[in-house]
Amino acid sequence: MKKIFKYCINQVAFYLVLIFFALITAAPFLYMIGTSFKGQSFIFEYPPKFIPDQPTLRNFIVAWTSRRFDKFFLNSVVVTLCSTISVVFLSSLMAYGFSRFQFRLKGFLNGSIRIFMMMPAMTLIIPQFILASKLDLINTLPGVILVYIAQNIPLCVFLLTGFMQQLPRELEEAAEIDGASPWEIYRTIIMPLSKPALATIAIFSSLGAWDEYVWAMTILNDPEKRTLPVGIAAFHGQYLTDWGVVFAASLIAITPIILLFIFMQKYFIKGIMAGSLKG
């Protein structure tokens, strides 16, 4: 009896703590949703309210009908899809190489990938920009996509290599005896088995591309070619920012990413632990 009582107390305390932290995490997000439905004169009301008294769709209408929001959305979709597909394909090949083959300079290549993971993107902006300008990629979406691919590959290769090293080799050996080439092994064995990890890197790299701001802001000059984060930032003024519109626009912008996460969640949790336990 005492044991059950103690168990209950523990559980209650456990859930209270969890609920407390969940509220802290969710509060800014809920406030953002609330604010996006507020009229401009209610945004700074004090004390702040999560649920507006007179909800309005004005902010969403202003955001969506502002000069080019649909274009921004489309640009972001193109950039994210192209870079994510390329990242998944390229890094799975690289990870396969690193986890299954011995070759010269392997340690050096592997190490340099890890070094690139540690480099802050901001320090690379000017060299990247000069390179892009020499390649005539300024003000083009391919210029944005190529850099996103390069930025996302190191982390994805690192995660995937860890995951692939744990895959049992027996299947591949059996396939090899049956005469499968490395390419067939990659395609028919490695890739299907790596699904959880692939889902993880797909989420990582699409999130990275969808949210990236500094590079897109720097390289794109044509308002029609802007991606969502840059477009939303242009709603900020030097003195006046209509926060309702900014929040409404941000809410529209994060919806696809949230859907993607919900959709791939079960893979994501499995994949993120890849490489964390290595014996």
């Binding site: 502002s66 242009a234 709603f235 003024g237």
Partner: peptide, 8 residues
């Protein structure tokens, strides 16, 4: 190029 708010 300028810094006028897009919706100003």
């Amino acid at each position: 190029w300028h810094t006028y708010n897009e919706i100003s």
